[in-house]
């Protein structure tokens, strides 16, 4: 419990510092683009493969039950709601919490212990601006992009599974998918991905930047970053779902 408050305080302090430094010009646009590539583009393959298999498995497992109840024709609608609302955003965020969160944290941690961050500071470049604000910006922008992509791939996986067992027309399948979706499904689930992205970037940066001396410190920081980022994602997911329900969207 002590640890929890320590982590929370550390994150809060960091958020304040990042916002203070991040909003002050000059802005590091080039570095943001660079980080979008490093964090986002390099995750496309992993996220794609996972999303496809998830879509596939989702249909393969739920089809027998639905058919048993004579509700086989609900397959597209069901996959659409579960993938768009929950599976797509959550799984993408959890994968990125692992891959991107640990990557950022290990990179910043080793930069810290090898004095590279000090070197930047004495060169007149603020590390909060150049290293941290840019990375958080990049994850906040890229997790939503990755989520959209994951949703499309997962739906393709679902269609693939459906077409193995039944004769399904691709146009029909995707028509049903998009018909089922309401604006009120898409907006909350898309909005929360920005929060996921922000949390993953923030946690990775905080843990990396504050990592203790030595290679062991860097490893511990990367590990802690994954655990805390995943927990944050799940908590944010829960809170957003709760708020959405209160607003009457569910």
């Amino acid at each position: 419990m002590d640890m929890f408050f320590q982590d929370a305080a550390e994150l809060a302090q960091f958020t304040v510092a990042v916002i203070k430094e991040g909003v002050r010009p000059p802005y590091e646009f080039r570095e943001v683009l660079n980080q979008c590539y490093e964090t986002g583009i390099k995750s496309f393959i992993l996220v794609g493969i996972t999303a496809f298999i998830l879509g596939l498995v989702l249909i393969m497992q739920s089809r027998p039950t639905l058919v048993e109840f004579g509700a086989g024709s609900f397959l597209p609608a069901m996959s659409s709601v579960s993938i768009v609302r929950e599976i797509g955003p959550l799984v993408t965020a959890l994968i990125c919490a692992g891959k991107i969160g640990s990557g950022i944290s290990a990179e910043l941690g080793s930069m810290k212990v090898t004095e590279q961050i000090d070197a930047m500071e004495v060169s007149g470049t603020n590390p909060f601006k150049f290293l941290i604000a840019t990375r958080i910006m990049a994850t906040t922008l890229m997790i939503p992009v990755l989520t959209l992509y994951a949703i499309l791939i997962a739906l393709t996986g679902a269609f693939t599974a459906a077409s193995i067992t039944d004769q399904v027309n691709i146009g029909f399948f995707f028509n049903r998918v998009f018909d089922t979706l309401k604006f009120s499904d898409v907006i909350p689930s898309f909005t929360k991905t920005f929060f996921f992205g922000f949390a993953i970037g923030l946690v990775g940066c905080t843990k990396g930047y504050n990592s203790k001396k030595g290679t062991e410190g860097v490893g511990k920081a990367a590990n802690a970053s994954v655990v805390i980022a995943m927990l944050s994602v799940i908590v944010i997911d829960m809170v957003v779902t709760r708020i959405t329900a209160m607003l009457g969207y569910l």
Partner: peptide
């Protein structure tokens, strides 16, 4: 700080940059 040079014990070269980029880095603001 621009009037002071600092040579770090670990050299502290930026791992992700080439030597050219490492040397150009202090000039980006000045």
């Amino acid at each position: 700080r621009m009037r002071i040079g600092f040579v770090f014990q670990s050299s502290a070269l930026y791992d992700s940059m080439t030597i050219r980029e490492n040397l150009a880095f202090p000039l980006r603001r000045s």
